[in-house]
């Protein structure tokens, strides 16, 4: 029998995980909303960032949470250079070619990582947040709590950015209606580059958080890519809140799926959710279009 406290524990873990997933997917959602491109290398960029975290913490014994301060701007620049070298040249071309280029990037990143770091998973040995609290039968891990808090704060700040700043509003209105945005005199080229940079920078933050408790191996990206696609598919173009709700649904599906079925079935549950969404709500649960 599954005890109620275990269900509660998994629900809490699921929500925490979901908040983190929302952050992971946010970069992808932003790029998709503004540029109409799905970056298939999304998860692989996260994997790359996670290796950066591992390198700095293993060699220089810097905590992953501190590495983020360095990685976020670095990945903003990496995002810009990817944009200018590969994305911009294919922007006007057919969707199939656009997707293909990012598929190629993902393959390259995966196999470079495999060549350099080999297949064994790497983890950071020590983190500032490796303690936990117990409240009755429930255990709260500080690292998970920390991740959830950082994720939700980041999403909140991002939401403010999209609603209060000129650049943010430009991104938002481009996502809403491309033609109107162009009429407003928004420079699409620069906006796209900044969006891609910002989306990639968000990935670096997620990777830093992930490494406070997770491991990295060359294929880490695949699972994060899939989770992000599911969240973006569900969230549709529903903005930050859409991504947040979808992330929590996915987190809960995974956490409760592993409780009620078997841990190895947890991803299958997530994909089934993805499939059902595409079948019944192809424009997303929270989409506006």
């Amino acid at each position: 029998m599954i005890s109620p406290s275990l269900v509660l524990q998994n629900t809490i873990d699921g929500v925490f995980l979901g908040l983190f997933y929302s952050l992971v997917a946010m970069g992808l959602a932003l790029i998709f909303g503004v540029m109409d491109i799905i970056n298939f290398a999304h998860g692989d960029l996260l994997m790359l960032a996670a290796y950066f975290v591992w390198l700095t913490s293993a060699d220089l014994s810097v905590d992953p949470t501190v590495t983020a301060l360095l990685l976020v701007p670095l990945f903003f620049l990496i995002g810009l250079s990817i944009h200018y070298s590969m994305i911009q040249p294919v922007l006007g071309k057919e969707p199939l070619i656009q997707i293909a280029v990012t598929v190629g990037l993902g393959l390259i990143l995966q196999n470079i990582a495999l060549a350099i770091f080999k297949a064994e998973p790497k983890a950071v040995a020590y983190s500032l947040f490796s303690f936990s609290y117990s409240i009755g039968p429930i255990t709260l891990y500080a690292s998970k709590l920390f991740i959830a808090v950082v994720s939700i704060v980041t999403l909140y700040v991002l939401n403010l950015f999209l609603n209060r700043t000129f650049l943010g509003l430009a991104m938002k209105s481009t996502a809403d209606n491309r033609e109107v945005a162009q009429l407003m005199g928004i420079n699409a080229k620069r906006l796209y580059a900044l969006t891609f940079g910002l989306g990639t920078a968000l990935i670096a933050l997620s990777a830093s958080l992930w490494m406070t408790f997770g491991q990295v191996q060359p294929y880490l990206g695949t699972s994060f890519s899939l989770i992000s696609w599911v969240i973006v598919a569900m969230g549709g173009l529903g903005g930050v809140t859409g991504v947040l709700y979808s992330g929590i649904i996915v987190g809960l599906a995974e956490s409760l799926g592993s409780l009620f079925l078997t841990p190895s079935a947890r991803m299958a549950v997530v994909y089934i959710v993805f499939f059902l969404v595409l079948w019944f709500r192809p424009r997303g649960l929270f989409g506006r279009r």
């Binding site: 969707p95 993805f274 499939f275």
Partner: peptide, 30 residues
Amino acid sequence: IPTFRFGIKEVWYALLTAALVVIFNNISRL
């Protein structure tokens, strides 16, 4: 059937078929 409806972005089909391989990998491993 779900992804070929008119007006649904091409990308969902790409995503779903990419996911399909992973799903079968997981299910068949189970």
